[in-house]
Amino acid sequence: MGKLVSIDRLNKWHGSLQALRDVSLDVAPHERLVVCGPSGSGKSTLLRCINGLENHDSGEVIVDGVRLANDGRAMIGVRREIGMVFQGFNLFPHMTVLENCTLAPIWVRKTPKLEAEELARKYLERVHVGAQAEKYPSQLSGGEQQRVAIARALCMAPKIMLFDEPTSALDPEMINEVLDIIVGLAETGMAMICVTHEMAFARRVADRIVFMDRGEIIEQGSPERIFDGPRTDRLKAFLSSVKKDRVQQESR
């Protein structure tokens, strides 16, 4: 089977700090990957190198058969196939929900306006914000905004979705409404790479979990293998710190 994303010995520096060290990673079509690790471990940077929001310093990223060069023009073609959902939603505040969703299809995919709107309404319906299509993002709750952001990315019919801590900026009661959408999307066979701290969700959705620390991939494997049989001390330490967080959260 061909690979959707293929990353080979990727290195990236933020000034003198090495954000990614020799990261190699393949993603198959329809594969669901969860990337976890302590903050500052390079998870988001890895994600942002895949759609070229950040340039890498050495190594190779191949997405859908196209080798990413650090050049804006070529990136635009590749980005069409990659949907991205950000921690902070990043909806366009001056456009309605519907306009947010139709902007890229109309201008980039050249979809006729009516058709784009119909498609957008379908996806908004699917993430349960169909009734809010004419509203502005500021009139929506955080969970609703993030679901709109997911719909907006889906409207471009991407081959893979990147989620960069999609629930980290949400109030606790809204986390599940967003995670449920992502699980539903995973069930349709959409390939995805999701950076998250939600371990229960990771176990539910992931085909494979990648654990990163200090810019390196330390361990990867099936959820069972990662959660039930961690091999390295760093992963064990991470898992116990996450567990501690959870206990604290629940006792609150």
Binding site: L53, I76, G77, R79, N90, F92, L103, V108
Partner: peptide, 13 residues
């Protein structure tokens, strides 16, 4: 983030 979201949607500059 606005620019990045637009870039991620593959909008030209």
């Amino acid at each position: 983030g606005q620019r990045e979201a637009a870039m991620a949607l593959s909008l030209p500059r």
